[in-house]
């Protein structure tokens, strides 16, 4: 679930240069390149050839289940388990179930969206080797970083470091988990 990280970290000056470096590294065949930025950089997912997030499908499926589950439960509770006769209307008077069906779906779907996001990202992960690099704290303000993991098949401590420097990367460091 939690991926430890050992590899190289390089700092870049601007969103444009970090995007260019990410494109170049991916073109060179690296697959574990990751960028760290204070805000999402437009086009970074394409540059790193990341697959589209499956999060939407998870929310759709769970939300649909919650929708029909809430509807079925209301009918079961007020129509089967303890039939409640409200002014002679049919037990399956679905218009009166709409509000709660929708509300429950929203509760479940919003919690699902959040928890799925955390699960897919492997968060919360309080310890991460990059945090040990003092300069890395800049990522949340105005720093743009690229990390390459040593699990990458193309990874070579010296060659990769040199490539990062060529791509205008600064303060290239090797970080161990």
């Amino acid at each position: 679930m939690f991926k430890p990280f050992t590899g190289l970290l390089a700092e870049f000056k601007s969103p444009a240069s970090v995007l260019a470096a990410a494109k170049a590294l991916t073109k060179a065949g690296y697959t574990t390149v990751d960028a760290h930025s204070p805000f999402p950089i437009h086009g970074m997912d394409k540059a790193l050839k990341l697959k589209d997030s499956p999060l939407g499908w998870v929310v759709v499926i769970v939300g649909t289940l919650a929708f029909f589950g809430a509807f079925a439960f209301q009918y079961w509770a007020n129509g089967v388990a303890y039939p409640v006769n409200v002014s002679g209307k049919p037990l399956l008077s679905y218009p009166s179930y709409i509000c709660i069906t929708y509300g429950f779906m929203t509760i479940v779907a919003s919690i699902t969206a959040a928890t799925t996001m955390f699960a897919l990202n492997g968060l919360p992960q309080l310890y991460y080797s990059l945090f040990k690099v003092g300069r890395f704290a800049k990522f949340s303000t105005d720093g743009f970083f690229i990390s390459v993991s040593e699990t990458d098949s193309k990874f070579d401590k010296e060659k990769t470091a040199q490539l990062l420097t060529e791509l205008q990367g600064e303060h290239v460091v090797y970080v161990e988990d």
Binding site: F2, P124, Q125, L126, Y127, F131, A137
Partner: peptide, 9 residues
């Protein structure tokens, strides 16, 4: 920054 111990994960 404060570095959390590995077991915190």
């Amino acid at each position: 920054p404060f570095i959390f111990p590995k077991w915190a994960n």
